[in-house]
Design a protein around this nucleic acid. Sequence first.
DNA 1: TAATAAATGAAAATTATTTTCATCTATCGT
DNA 2: ACGATAGATGAAAATAATTTTCATTTATTA
Lengths: 152, 152
Amino acid sequence: MDYNYKDILSALKHEGYKLTPQRRAVIQALHSTYNHMTPLEIFEKVSIRSRNISLVTIYRTLDALEKAGFICRLNLETGRSGYLLRRPRSHHHHLVCSICGVVVNIGNCELEELEKRVSEHTGFKIISHTFDISGICPECQNGKIKTSGVKI
Amino acid sequence: MDYNYKDILSALKHEGYKLTPQRRAVIQALHSTYNHMTPLEIFEKVSIRSRNISLVTIYRTLDALEKAGFICRLNLETGRSGYLLRRPRSHHHHLVCSICGVVVNIGNCELEELEKRVSEHTGFKIISHTFDISGICPECQNGKIKTSGVKI
DNA sequence: TAATAAATGAAAATTATTTTCATCTATCGT
DNA sequence: ACGATAGATGAAAATAATTTTCATTTATTA
């Protein structure tokens, strides 16, 4: 089950956040695509419609949304951060195309068993794992130039 | 099999890099610990012995060493980069303590099978994967404050 | 509708990293 | 050992991402 726009608004409100036009705009932007966006990209996207938002607010909103668990943060190869709506809500990983940046989710994470063995072997108390795969998506393999998202 | 100081020097030379005192110092610093270090930390460590190195050179040397495959780069939780000598040379992953930063290697990567399934399912040509686990090491679970490395 | 805690924007501050360019030096052929 | 030279270095500036500060505004709730 994915989060939708209304889900997020009411959940945020329930957690004590105020529903400002800026926050609505950021959530809407994230909700409108399946691709990851950097804070700057979100800023640019949101700014097309209304001039009433600053990049700082984007950063702050993304922090809040990430803490509240509504979005995923990607460590992009460039060292920057990319964000996308959490789809699905359950634990999953991301497959990111090195060329066009399209993101495909990988569900059915099968790493818990490995994680358990690692814990037993090292004595670490495991908090989390990240598993990101990069590769070339089918479209880019065919030489098409493409930058929009695809849902799988 | 790990890389050692001499291995790296001769391999670098063989690849056309000049063996400058600065590069020797960076390699030595990386070789002296099993923990990851940021470029700044390496700079500070190296600067204790000699004043003859600039942070820029650290960055450039790390780039070269990473391209040549002698060191691993970690995407730290802070969004910064941490570097450590490639030990062992073979494919492996890192378990990083969220508190003290100690790094433990995880060999016998068992993700190739998963990677293959992902490739078949999505049509992506897989280039690489990252799998990083964070947790609390045994020492930090016991409340000890500790910042030095441990080899496992 | 008023009170107020939280959110915002503008600007500056911080921090990481890269680039530019003049100078220097490790290496190689003699 | 010596000189030529491609490559390496350092200083400073440029770039870029992110965070902080603080005065002002606003969504919420009584």
